[in-house]
Design a protein around this nucleic acid. Structure first.
Length: 669
RNA sequence: GCUCUCGUAGCUCAGUUGGAUAGAGCGUUCGCCUCCUAAGCGAAAGGUCGCGCGUUCGAGUCGCGCCGAGAGCACCA
C-alpha cells in the first residue's frame, strides 16, 4: 500500500464512520491534509468542525467537535497502518502511521520496479502545444519560458500515466516571416541563392542563421518607420507567401525552415523535443478553414451580417461577452472581403487537434534527434512513403500560450464548444502564463539605452521587433561557461569532455529550474544575477543534493541496499524504537513518498511550479539529513540500515522529480 | 469604459478544495570543513498578508467596495 492508497482508505473510513455514527453524508468533501509539523502526525482531518455544524443543522443538537473527533479516532485506529490517532486543538484528528511498517512497505515497493504506461496505445492521448516561436528569428528567454513550461507539463502528464503528443506550431506564412523576407529582398537586395550563400558563410564563420535574422528583423522594424512604402511591399510579400508556388514563397520557406532548425537546436540543448511541427502553410493549402466553415454553417452556429458595423462578415455570436459601443460581442471569423481571420483559422486548427475536423495533414520526417526520436512536419502532398504515426484526435488539448492571448484563446475554446457541444469547453485548455520581462538594469546590460519613461518602469517588455531580449543560446552559453569554471576548480582530474558535459547539465538545470520556480501568474522580471545563480533555491542545489546521495552509495559496499532491506524487515521493533527519536528521518521518508501525489496535484492545477517547489523542499530535507547523519561510519547495524533505506528512498524520489522537471543529475559536481 | 491577473519580510517569490505558531531564497549579522562533496549546514534579525466591510467555529485564501500595478478588449497575427 502506498501513501495515496493509504490516504484514500482513511478518507473513506472517515466518511463511512460519519454516516454510521452521526448519519451525516460527507461525500467526497472530506479533505486530508499534511500537518504543519511531523510531531503533529502524518495526516490530519479537520473534519470534526464540519460535522458539528452538519449535526446541528440536521438535529438541532449541539455536539462538541472534540467529542466527534474521539468517535472518529476509534474508527481510524482499527486500521492496520495506523499506529495511533490523536485529537488535538479544538478537534483536529491527527493520524500517526506505523512508521516501521510503512518503511518496510516503501522499501520493498521501491525494489519491485516502477510504473510506466506511456507505450500503451489503449490509453487516450492528450496534446500539448508549446514553443510555437515565429520562425523569423532566434528564440529569447520569453520563448524559453513557454517551452520549458510546456515540456515540463508534458513530462508531468507522462509521469501521471498519460499518453502525450507534443506539437510545436509553425506560423511559416505570417507577417513576422514576411517582415524578414522584406528585409532580405528589399533592404539587402538578396535572392534565394544569395541567402543560401549567406547561410553557408554564416555556418563557416560559426554564426547562426537565426541570430542574423534577429538583427535583420530589428532593422526592418526601424525601416518601416522611415519608409511607409515598405509596408506596402510587406502586404504584397505576405500575399505571395500565403498563395504559395512562387519565388517569394520559396524564399520565405527557406528562411522559415532554417529558423525552425535553429530553434529546434536551441530547444534540444534544453532537452526539449517535439513529435510534430504543424505548419500554417498546410492549414491554408489543405483548406482546413473551408472544411470548418462548412461544419459551422451546417450546425448553424455562424451568421452572415447584412447590416451594422460587421456588415458583410461572417460572425460567431458570443453571449458571454456583452458588447458595447466600441466593441462587438460577436467575433468576426470571415471579413467582408472574404478572407479568414486568425481566430477563424485557429478554430479550424483546434478542431483538427481534437479530431473534429474530418480532414488530416500529410506528414514527412523532419529530422531524427540524437536519441533516435523522430520529429515530423506537415506537408500538403501525400508522399505515402513512410510509416507515419497517428497525429491529432486528442482527448484534451493544452495550448501553452502567454496570458496576453487569453481573450482569443477563450474565443477558440468557446467557438469549438459551440460547434461541438458534445465535447464541451473542457477539451480545450489554455495553459496561460505571464511573460518574461527585463529589469531596466538587465536591458541596460544588454546595451540598450533607455528612455526616461522606461527607467521609471519596474520592468520592460521584450520585443523581437526591436531586437530587445535575452537570446536563449547566449544565456545558455553564459551558464555553461560559469558552470565550467566551477567544475574545473572542483574536479580538475576529469577529462575536458566530462567537465563540459557536467557544466552543460548544471547550466540546463539552472535555467529550467529558474523558469519553473515561479507560478504561471507571476511575471518574471529577468535579472542576470538571479538567473545565473547556482546557490540557494536553484536547480543546481537540487542536483547537488542528489549527487551527494549517489556518492554515498558509490562508497557503500555493493549489497548495502539489499542488506538494509533485509535488516529492516527482520528488525521491525528496533526500527520502531529508532523512529521514536528520529523524527527528522521519518519526515524525510514521508516527504519522499509524496512525489506521486505532488505530480497529480500539478496536473489538476496545471501548475509545474508545484513540482519544482516540492523538489527543492525534498533536496533541502535531504541535505539536512546528510548533514546530521553519517551513514558510512554508523555502527549500529539497524540504524545504518534505516539510514541507507531512507537515503535511497530520498535519492530515487529526488532523481525522478528532477527528471520530470527535465533536469538530469550529473555524476559529480 | 469593460474583462482578466496581481498586491504577503529590505528585495524576489511560495502558501494545497478556508484549518494549527504565515514559509523559502537572496541580502544583513554570527557560527560550522581532521568527518559520505562547504554549489552545503545551523542560528539571529526581519510581517498591520494593500485598505475597509462581510460570510464562517475558523480568512493570506471566499464575497462586496475602495486604492495601487500589469495585461487584454480589431474586418492585426
Amino acid at each position: 500500500m502506498n501513501i495515496s492508497q493509504l490516504q484514500k482508505v482513511l478518507r473513506e473510513k472517515v466518511v463511512q464512520t460519519a454516516k454510521e455514527k452521526f448519519n451525516v453524508e460527507l461525500g467526497t468533501a472530506v479533505a486530508g491534509e499534511v500537518p504543519p509539523k511531523t510531531e503533529l502526525g502524518d495526516l490530519a482531518f479537520p473534519v470534526a468542525f464540519e460535522l458539528a455544524k452538519r449535526i446541528k443543522q440536521q438535529t438541532g443538537k449541539k455536539k462538541n467537535p472534540r467529542e466527534i473527533a474521539e468517535t472518529l479516532r476509534a474508527a481510524l485506529e482499527t486500521q492496520d497502518f495506523v499506529e495511533r490517532v490523536e485529537v488535538a486543538g479544538a478537534g483536529y484528528l491527527n493520524v500517526f502511521y506505523n512508521r516501521a511498517k510503512f518503511l518496510s512497505e516503501s522499501v520493498s515497493a521501491n525494489a519491485s520496479a516502477e510504473q510506466n504506461s506511456s507505450g500503451n496505445e489503449t490509453i487516450s492521448k492528450v496534446c500539448v502545444e508549446h514553443t510555437s516561436v515565429n520562425p523569423n528569428k532566434a528564440a529569447h528567454i520569453g520563448h524559453v519560458r513557454n517551452s520549458v513550461l510546456g515540456d515540463t507539463f508534458v513530462r508531468i502528464l507522462r509521469a501521471s500515466g498519460k499518453r502525450v503528443e507534443v506539437q510545436n506550431y509553425i506560423d511559416n506564412t505570417g507577417v513576422q516571416v514576411a517582415d524578414v523576407v522584406v528585409g532580405f529582398v528589399y533592404l539587402e537586395k538578396k535572392n534565394l541563392d544569395d541567402i543560401k550563400q549567406l547561410d553557408e558563410n554564416l555556418k563557416a564563420g560559426g554564426k547562426s542563421f537565426d541570430y542574423y535574422c534577429w538583427d535583420l528583423y530589428a532593422k526592418v522594424g526601424v525601416a518601416y518607420q522611415q519608409n511607409e512604402g515598405l509596408k506596402t511591399k510587406r502586404a504584397a510579400v505576405l500575399h505571395s507567401i500565403e498563395e504559395g508556388n512562387n519565388e517569394t514563397a520559396m524564399l520565405a520557406d527557406f528562411v522559415a525552415t532554417r529558423n525552425v532548425e535553429c530553434i529546434l537546436k536551441t530547444m534540444e540543448r534544453l532537452s526539449i523535443r517535439y513529435d510534430l511541427l504543424p505548419r500554417e502553410s498546410e492549414i491554408l493549402h489543405l483548406h482546413f478553414w473551408q472544411k470548418a466553415f462548412e461544419e459551422m454553417k451546417r450546425r448553424d452556429v455562424i451568421k452572415y451580417e447584412i447590416e451594422g458595423k460587421a456588415s458583410g462578415c461572417w460572425v460567431m455570436p458570443f453571449e458571454s461577452h456583452a458588447g458595447n459601443d466600441e466593441h462587438d460581442a460577436d467575433k468576426i471569423l470571415v471579413r467582408s472581403n472574404g478572407t479568414v481571420t486568425y481566430t477563424g483559422k485557429d478554430i479550424a486548427y483546434q478542431m483538427w487537434k481534437l479530431g473534429l475536423l474530418g480532414l488530416d495533414f500529410y506528414y514527412k520526417l523532419f529530422r531524427e534527434y540524437a536519441d533516435g526520436k523522430a520529429v515530423w512536419i506537415t506537408t500538403a502532398e501525400d508522399l505515402r512513403s513512410e510509416k507515419v504515426p497517428v497525429f491529432g484526435s486528442n482527448e484534451t488539448v493544452y495550448n501553452v500560450i502567454d496570458s496576453r492571448q487569453s481573450y482569443p484563446q477563450e474565443v477558440v475554446k468557446k467557438g469549438v464548444a459551440t460547434i461541438f457541444p458534445e465535447r464541451g469547453e473542457a477539451a480545450s485548455v489554455h495553459l496561460s502564463y505571464e511573460m518574461v520581462a527585463l529589469s531596466p538594469n538587465a536591458a541596460e546590460q544588454l546595451g540598450f539605452t533607455l528612455s526616461e519613461e522606461d527607467k521609471q518602469k519596474s520592468f520592460i517588455e521584450m520585443s523581437g521587433r526591436k531586437g530587445l531580449g535575452v537570446k536563449a543560446d547566449d544565456l545558455i552559453d553564459r551558464l555553461e561557461a560559469n558552470a565550467l569554471r566551477e567544475v574545473e576548480t572542483r574536479h580538475a582530474d576529469l577529462s575536458m569532455e566530462e567537465k563540459k558535459k557536467t557544466a552543460h547539465t548544471i547550466a540546463i538545470g539552472a535555467l529550467r529550474y529558474f523558469l519553473l520556480k515561479f507560478t504561471l501568474t507571476t511575471v518574471i522580471v529577468f535579472d542576470f544575477k538571479e538567473a545565473l545563480s547556482f546557490e540557494g533555491e536553484t536547480g543546481c542545489f537540487c542536483q547537488y543534493s542528489a549527487v551527494r546521495a549517489n556518492s554515498i552509495f558509490r562508497k557503500l559496499e555493493e549489497n548495502a541496499l539489499e542488506n538494509a532491506t533485509e535488516t529492516i524487515s527482520n528488525s521491525q521493533t528496533e526500527i520502531q524504537e529508532l523512529f521514536a527519536t528520529e523524527n527528522e528521518v521519518w519526515s524525510l521518508i514521508t516527504l519522499a513518498s509524496r512525489l506521486g501525489e505532488t505530480i497529480a496535484q500539478a496536473v489538476t492545477a496545471t501548475e509545474p511550479a508545484i513540482l519544482a517547489k516540492y523538489t527543492f523542499g525534498l533536496a533541502k530535507a535531504f541535505n539536512l539529513f546528510y548533514h546530521n547523519h553519517k551513514i558510512i561510519t554508523e555502527e549500529n547495524p539497524v540504524k545504518r540500515a534505516l539510514l541507507i533505506a531512507t537515503a535511497d528512498l530520498a535519492r530515487k524520489s529526488l532523481t525522478n522529480a528532477l527528471m520530470t522537471l527535465g533536469i538530469e543529475v550529473p555524476e559529480r559536481m
